[in-house]
Amino acid sequence: MFTRVLAVASLEIRIGLRNRWLLLATLILAAFSLALALLGSAPAGTLGVDRMTITVASLASLSVYLVPLLALLLAFDAISGEIDRGTALLIFSSPISRVEFLLGKAIGHFAVILIALLLGYGLTAGVLVAFGGGSLAGLTDFARLIATSAMLGLSFLAIGYIASSATRAPGTAAALAIGIWLVAVVLYDLALLGALVADNGGTFSRSVFPLALLANPADAFRLFNLAALGASDLVGGMAGVSDALPYPPSAALAAIAGVTLAAFAAAAAILKRIEP
């Protein structure tokens, strides 16, 4: 079983290298994070907070937008592409189970995202250290950001696999993936905000809203990172919310893991029913 999963995973990494996907993702992450680090560092001196910490706070917001997009763009082709090319027939007629196949894809794609995050955000951390803006506390913040961003990526990979196996056609899967990104990252927050305003401190704000934040990995990710940075005094907004929630910030991490597992189970269930 292990060699088969590894065969799928290593092929995905190879493809990511070959078609310059990994390079592109790294460049995008590096460019955006460097821009935020260098342009956004101006107020750090006056606030007297570690320059790396405030950069990580900005990068957490960047990750919320970029990482789900990268993950969904990697995932949409995973099953639909194999069906479209006819290679699904070959793969599923060989002695690999559907779950092993999905696991291999996930490990390969996860590795691609992790490498891009390490290189992209790592470069920014390196630049900050080189220019004398680094500290040990700042580096652990960076490490936490990279680790949780990778978790966020994995959750959206799993959601992308649902789209890929449910549509079975790469074009439709791609459109659905973009739709999922738009809803999860942009519209979900807008809807919550609207509901909060309309509810004005009623039952929704007290019981539904905290759970709604956990249900969306993008929100759970932001919640955890800003709470961990103690950044409510730095950036305000969403970060201030975490103090008023009925659960510790670590529950947000558990929620991301839960959504990831549920999405994997759903994708595997759909994949098992597919006749290639």
């Binding site: 060699t3 088969r4 065969a7 493809i15 090319r85 027939l89 793969i91 060989s94």
Partner: peptide, 26 residues
């Protein structure tokens, strides 16, 4: 099995594709 219409990943080489399927088949 050889299906009627199969299009292997264009970015991969023949050796890589056969190595992949060898490992899948143990």
């Amino acid at each position: 099995y050889l299906p009627e219409a199969v299009a292997f990943q264009k970015a991969l080489t023949g050796v890589e594709i056969l190595t992949f399927f060898s490992r899948l088949k143990g």
